[in-house]
Design a protein around this nucleic acid. Sequence first.
DNA 1: TATTTGGTTGTACATTATGTACAACTTGGC
DNA 2: GCCAAGTTGTACATAATGTACAACCAAATA
Lengths: 202, 202
Amino acid sequence: MSPRPYRMERRREATDQNRDRILAAARELLASKEPSARFSLEEVAHRAGVARMTVYYQFGSLVGLLQGLCDSLAMAGGMSHLADAFRQPDALDAMDRFVAVFMDFWHSDRPVMRALGALAVLNPEVAAVLDERYDWRRKGVRMLLERVAQQTGRPTPKRMKEAADLLYLLTSFSTYDTLAVPGRSHAVVIRLVQRLARQILS
Amino acid sequence: MSPRPYRMERRREATDQNRDRILAAARELLASKEPSARFSLEEVAHRAGVARMTVYYQFGSLVGLLQGLCDSLAMAGGMSHLADAFRQPDALDAMDRFVAVFMDFWHSDRPVMRALGALAVLNPEVAAVLDERYDWRRKGVRMLLERVAQQTGRPTPKRMKEAADLLYLLTSFSTYDTLAVPGRSHAVVIRLVQRLARQILS
DNA sequence: TATTTGGTTGTACATTATGTACAACTTGGC
DNA sequence: GCCAAGTTGTACATAATGTACAACCAAATA
C-alpha cells in the first residue's frame, strides 16, 4: 500500500529541532579546546540532551553526522553568496568577491573548520565528504582564471597552472587561519588576500 | 649504592634497533592511506614485530611515540641544515636557504607530516609536542626579517608583522602540500616559494 | 660460573568508544 | 482508537588505550 499523504508538520518541527540541537552540540564539541570535552558521539548526544540512539537514527553514523554538519556550515557560512561573485561583470572584481566569500566562510565557524579539516586528513570517509562539498573552490578558481585570461590576454598554460594553485592556496582555510591573528581584523585579512591574489596575476 | 659503570653496547644496539623498527612501523602506518591500516599502538607493535608492551616500555604512550617520531623526522628531514641558512652573509640568500630547508623537510616524509599536523589539531598534547619542536620556524622568520630590514632599511612595524605572517604561511606544510603537485618538481616548488618570499618584501 | 639487571613478553583487567539489534515507549496524525 | 515515525534503554560485539604484574631472556658484571 502506498504511503498515506501525511502532513506531520508539528512532528517535522520537533525532529528538525532535535537535529539542529544535535548539530549545535557537535559544533560546540568540535570547537571546544578543553581536553575534557573529547569529540564523540556519546558526548554529542549528551550535550544535545538526547539519547545516543537518536543520533544514530538521525544521522546513521559519526561520518553521517559530520556530513550533516558540513551542509549546515555551508548554509550558515554564506556559501550561497558564491554565485554573486561570478555575476560580477569584471573578472578581477569577481575574484575579489570570490576571495571574500571564502574568507567569510572560514571565519564563520573557525574552530570547527579546523577540526573538520583535521578529521578529513585522518579519515578517508570524511575526506570524501569534504572533497565533495568543497570542490566549488577548485572549480571556482579555474573559472575565474579563465575569465581573467580572456579579459587580459591569455598567459602561457604553465603560468595558468601556477596561478591556479596559488589562488587555491590563498583561498584555503590554512591561509585564513594563518593570517587571521589577533590584531588583524577580518576586513584587513580579506583586503590582504585580495591584494595578494591580484599580485599573482601580474 | 651507586650504579655500576655498565657498558652494555650490544644491548643498547639491540634495543635501539627495536626503537627504530617501532618508529619505522609508525611512519609506515601514518603514511598508509588504506583504511585497513588504521593507526593504533596495537598495529604499530604488530608491524614492528614486537609486543604491544614493548612499545609502552620504550615510549610510554601513544603521544610519547609521536614525540619520538617527531625527533626522528627532524633528524632525517635535514633540519640540521637550518643553521647553515643563517650563516649566509646576505639576508636574502639566507631567506632562500631558509625556504629550501623547510621545503626539503616537508618533502622528506610528506604523508607523515600531513598526519602529524592533523593529529596535533585534534589532540592538544600532540599539538604541544609539535609546537615545541617546530617553533624554530617562527623564530627563524622573525630573525630573517630583522636582518632583511636592517640590510634594506627598516620598514614600518605593521608591514613587518604582515611580512612575518606571510613568510610563515609560505614556509608552512600546508603551502608545500598545496603547491607540490604532480607535474611540478620539488626544485620548482622551492624556486616558486623563494620567488614569492622575495615578492613579499617588495 | 653465578648473579644482577635491562629489556621483552603474556595475561588480566578497567575504561571508553563505535556500531548493531531489538524491544518498549511516546506522541502526532489519521 | 489505531498507526507509524521518532525516541529511548538494554544488551551485545568489537576494538582501542592504558595499567598492573609476573615470568622470562640474555647481556653485563662480579
